[in-house]
Computed example of a mutant assay.
Amino acid sequence: MSTLTKNQHYVWCNYLREWTDKKGHIACYMLKERNSFCTKPENIAVERFFYELTDLNEIEQEWIDRLIERASNPEVRQMHRETVGLFQNIFKMQSWLDLQQDLADTARQSLQAKLDVMRKTLGERWHTGIENLAFPLLEKLKNSDVDFYNHEQDRINFIHYISQQFFRTPKLRVLQIRENHPYFDKGLDLDRTWFLESQIFATNVSAGIFLERNMYKFKFLTNETETSFITGDQPVISLGEDGIGFRLYYPLKPTLALIFEKDAIAPLKTETKAMSLQVNYYNSQMLKFSYNQIYGLNKEHLQAVADLPKDVLAG
């Protein structure tokens, strides 16, 4: 716990490397600034102490408790309580340290430094653990291999991973800051509660998918066109809930994308060759749902995606 990582990623660096060139550079287009540049994946999709934890005040705890109770499954509610407790234990330790009047200064300073590091980095380490479990699964997916889904633990790890990739981003954090939130009048600051909220939402989605895990299938879009798939700072996007279940789109590399969706009839894996119009459609959706950055093989292509008509159709 001695290393303090200030710039914390909300998109996995290892994932982004599929879009790098021989020099290890990836192209990035900034939507708000309307400019592009090339850099290392380590330099994008980051925010200073993005996962820093906060000590919940009474109103914040009330809101988190209310979110937990919305889960209909008692086992899921218990999982939420344990997760929230894990991240709030740091502040119980801080309270204990504050009460230790007889502690030597050097010992107090050492313990305080360790608590500060934990508060600022535990959330990132949590996501690193999820990514480590998903690494071999992602490598298989990039080869259109879904055999891992037949193994219970791998299936759990994948469902948890893709749900976390959907909810961990600034885009979803901003969506939570809505004008008519019932707790705004009570002084609730959703920036302070977002990390815990994201864990609750991701777990709820994971649990829902897991309950119907045999109904969810993998649809691969192979891309042999001259236009590559792009990705963005919201790498997993929802193509909507059509009354059947979630449809999650996840570009895996410039030549391959995944749709993970509920389909009772389809086999576990299907592969379809994407036409140019379809590639443009999915790229436009990635642009639409990104927060401020899209990523690709080169700046010129990203500029072209940014200039796509807003009514691009899948065809």
Rank of each mutant, 00 (worst) to 15 (best):
V76T: 14
Q78D: 09
Q78C: 01
M79E: 14
M79P: 08
H80C: 01
R81H: 08
R81F: 08
E82P: 08
T83A: 12
V84T: 10
G85A: 01
L86G: 01
F87K: 10
F87N: 09
F87P: 02
Q88H: 10
N89K: 11
N89Q: 02
I90S: 02
F91T: 05
M93V: 03
M93G: 01
M93L: 07
Q94R: 02
S95A: 14
S95P: 01
S95K: 03
W96I: 15
D98N: 07
D98A: 06
D98Q: 11
D98S: 11
L99E: 12
L99S: 15
L99D: 13
Q101N: 15
Q101T: 15
D102A: 06
D102K: 00
D102N: 11
D102Y: 03
L103D: 05
L103P: 14
L103V: 12
L103Q: 07
A104T: 15
D105G: 05
D105Y: 07
D105K: 12
T106I: 08
T106L: 05
R108P: 14
R108I: 02
Q109M: 06
S110Q: 11
L111C: 11
L111I: 15
L111W: 02
Q112H: 14
A113W: 04
A113G: 14
A113Y: 14
L115D: 13
L115K: 02
D116I: 07
D116A: 09
D116P: 10
V117Q: 09
V117M: 06
M118E: 09
M118Y: 03
M118D: 11
R119Y: 03
R119L: 01
R119Q: 14
K120N: 03
K120P: 03
T121G: 03
T121N: 15
L122N: 07
G123M: 06
G123F: 01
R125W: 04
R125K: 12
R125E: 13
W126T: 15
W126L: 12
H127A: 13
T128C: 08
T128P: 01
T128W: 09
T128A: 12
G129D: 02
G129Y: 10
G129N: 03
I130F: 04
E131I: 06
N132Y: 04
N132F: 09
N132R: 02
L133E: 13
A134I: 04
A134H: 07
A134N: 01
F135R: 13
F135N: 08
P136A: 12
L137C: 04
L137P: 09
L137E: 04
L138V: 04
E139S: 11
E139W: 00
